[in-house]
């Protein structure tokens, strides 16, 4: 009887792991708490660094696993180890007997309204990067008509003790520069500002994106964390920051302010980690057994990890982790079969 593997989370990590497990001859089962597969990728328009369409990437991931059984709008309620199998109770009364569990529940976007001084949900001109991405993709959600001045605020909900997320979320700087270019592309005579503390363009070709933003699109990069946002008489969003490089406080009124919300641990991970008794770091991300050599291993026998559940990641990293976990599951199951 081929082994069944439970994959918690239908985002890029889950889809890729399912595809690999199929190829390795196992029978993966995907459990997804939302009503669609693809996680945040499904809500994204274009990806950095070269603006590939998120839709085509998603299609490439979903196509090979279209026949894999998927439980949508379902969460794991209980999982107990029986011998070398797991009996997993799913919401809606369903149940699965699986030989291994792969946790790839991914991340949540930081709720921007928790950063009160940025006025998300209070001033109309303030939106988040995912709102903007959704607008680029569908034109719905927020209304943006020909803004003459647009601002991007980096590190919203990342590298901030005040909201208990001291870590850097890695992808928002590149996304900000990408979106800045997209805004200039769409509204050529708009003026775009990026307020950053450190511009972390760490990957290959990210620097080219940054260079293009600088000299082709003339995006203006100001090194200074935005301190507060308010609305002036005409409804424009007024922001205050310090240009730390010329040590001058400055203010500017914008038509649109985009908050680059960071990655925090998945909101439902607390409950899930309880069920599977995984150990969680104090910022909520799951701690793998060894952050260097065993990122895929949860430290509990038969339970594996992949993707942003263990911390902020780009999509290429997530996919390679998914493949690593699939292989780890394969090794685990095959030498278990020998015993």
């Amino acid at each position: 009887m081929t082994d069944r593997v439970l994959i918690i989370g239908g985002g890029p990590a889950g889809l890729e792991a399912a595809n690999q497990l199929n190829l390795l001859g196992y029978k993966p089962v995907i459990v997804e708490k939302d009503d669609t597969l693809g996680g945040h990728l499904a809500k994204w328009d274009r990806l950095f660094p070269e603006g590939e369409s998120a839709e085509t990437v998603l299609y490439k991931l979903i196509k090979p696993v279209e026949h894999t059984p998927v439980y949508l709008n379902t969460i794991v309620e209980q999982a107990d180890k029986e011998g070398n199998h797991f009996r997993v109770k799913l919401s809606g009364g369903k149940e699965e007997i699986v030989s291994a569990i792969l946790v790839c529940a991914g991340f949540s976007l930081f709720p921007a309204e928790k950063k009160e001084e940025y006025g998300y949900g209070i001033y109309n001109g303030v939106i988040t990067s995912s709102d903007l991405e959704k607008w680029f993709k569908t034109g719905k959600g927020v209304n943006i008509n020909n803004p003459s001045k647009v601002g991007f605020v980096h590190c919203v909900g990342s590298r901030d003790e005040k909201i208990c997320n001291r870590q850097c979320s890695k992808v928002c700087c590149v996304t900000a520069v990408k979106q800045a270019c997209e805004i200039k592309e769409k509204f050529p005579d708009s003026e775009v500002f990026c307020f950053y503390m450190d511009l972390r363009m760490f990957g290959r070709k990210y620097e080219d994106l940054y260079l293009k933003a600088q000299n082709k699109y003339r995006v203006r990069f100001i090194r200074g964390r935005v301190s507060e946002v308010s609305e002036d008489f005409t409804g424009k969003v007024v922001i205050k920051a310090e240009d730390t490089l010329s040590s001058k406080p400055l203010k500017v009124s914008l038509d649109l302010l985009v908050l680059m919300t960071g990655m925090i641990s998945n909101s439902s991970i607390e409950e899930l980690s309880g069920i599977l008794s995984l150990n969680r770091a104090e910022d909520g991300f799951i701690e793998p057994a060894d952050t260097i050599t065993k990122m895929y291993d949860s430290g509990k026998e038969g339970i594996f990890l992949a993707g942003a559940v263990t911390g902020p990641k780009t999509i290429p990293e997530t996919l390679s982790e998914a493949r690593a976990s699939a292989l780890a599951i394969h090794n685990y199951l095959s030498n278990k079969a020998i015993q």
């Binding site: 309204e113 009160e116 006025g119 998300y120 949900g121 209070i122 001033y123 109309n124 609305e231």
Partner: peptide, 10 residues
């Protein structure tokens, strides 16, 4: 101005 936003914070 979205006043509900403030009420939520209050």
């Amino acid at each position: 101005m979205i006043v509900e936003g403030k009420k939520k914070i209050w």
